[in-house]
């Protein structure tokens, strides 16, 4: 209703006025989840400045500091707020650096899956016929396996194919690739479905009449119209991807203890759970839960907010 409003109020102001922003402000769960996520994101992004210690610097570790309980315990020390592990590594610092790696891998894997999925979905939906049949059967077959199994398999094969000395250096890239590969079918199927609908619309026909190439029609006309659901699935898949990475690291095929992710920390701590040193595994676990929970709550909100039937 702002027909007479002055032009170009700026992207931020326009966003604040949008339906989506309104629905965000009205949802306390979404706001809480976003705040939580922001805190975690800041902590992870600024880890080198906010963390009390550098867990990646092995020289700074002191075995004398090992197995110190959290600060509120009688034996706790103020320099290790959440205690230390068996190597004398500060748990809080480990979590901050670990969340950082987990997020990088999670976001990287989802972006990879989104790019592959969108490309396959657009191609299958727009070209149809044999291309569609082949791409979608590959996706169907992959969907019959659990994603974690695919990720485990791809990770194993890629790692075996790489020379020994590159394993540690390329571990993050390998994980992004193997987790990303295991999630592309969801995106491909969604994009294909929307593409089938959009392809039959008259605006696509109008573009074909003036002789635009199929590639240009897919990228400039269809792609912007199929991105909505991709955002929702992307957000929800981010939570899954982070959990998958944590699971792989927990199983010992993920990141090594020298550059631990949250999953690696949980695995290390797991060995000491029954000897009473619960903080080593509970705190990283809690961090993982909060991270994934806030992402999923935001994803749920986004799904509902973008669904016109639920308005």
């Amino acid at each position: 209703m702002s027909a007479a409003a002055p032009r170009a109020p700026g992207a931020l102001a326009r966003w604040w006025d949008s339906d989506l922003a309104y629905s965000f402000r009205r949802s306390p769960v979404a706001v809480a989840a976003a705040l939580m996520l922001l805190v975690i994101l800041f902590g992870a992004a600024l880890a080198p400045w906010v963390a009390p210690h550098n867990p990646l610097d092995l020289a700074s570790l002191n075995l004398m500091d090992s197995r110190i309980p959290p600060v509120w315990d009688a034996e706790g020390q103020s320099s290790f707020p959440l205690g230390t592990d068996d190597q004398g590594r500060d748990i809080l610092s480990g979590i901050l650096y670990g969340v950082r790696i987990s997020l990088v891998i999670g976001v990287g894997a989802v972006l990879f899956a989104v790019v592959v999925g969108i490309a396959a979905g657009l191609l299958a939906g727009y070209a149809g016929g044999a291309v569609d049949a082949v791409l979608m059967r590959i996706a169907d077959i992959q969907l019959t396996f659990p994603a974690i199994l695919i990720a485990l398999l791809v990770d194993g094969v890629v790692t075996a194919a790489l020379p020994q000395e590159m394993h540690e250096r390329l571990k993050v890239q390998v994980l992004i690739f193997s987790i990303g590969i295991s999630f592309w079918p969801q995106f491909a199927r969604t994009v294909r479905g929307s593409t089938l609908v959009e392809r039959g619309r008259e605006y696509v026909m109008a573009a074909r009449v003036i002789g635009l190439s199929s590639g240009r029609i897919m990228l400039t006309h269809i792609l912007p119209n199929v991105l909505g659901p991709v955002f929702v699935i992307g957000t929800l898949t981010l939570g899954l991807a982070i959990v998958t990475e944590a699971t792989l690291s927990f199983l010992g095929v993920g990141l090594p203890p020298s550059s631990p992710s949250v999953g690696t920390l949980i695995r290390i701590g797991n060995d000491f759970l029954f000897s009473g040193e619960w903080w080593m595994t509970i705190f990283p676990g809690l961090a993982l839960v909060l991270l994934v929970l806030s992402i999923n709550l935001l994803g749920d909100w986004l799904r509902d907010a973008l669904n016109p039937k639920l308005r």
């Binding site: 008259e202 605006y203 026909m205 109008a206 009449v209 003036i210 002789g211 006309h221 912007p224």
Partner: peptide
């Protein structure tokens, strides 16, 4: 090709909403 074009039936589907 430039010299021919088409006008469509459904004005709600013939313009790209984005």
């Amino acid at each position: 090709r430039r010299r021919m074009n088409m006008i469509f039936q459904d004005p709600y589907a013939s313009l790209n909403p984005r």
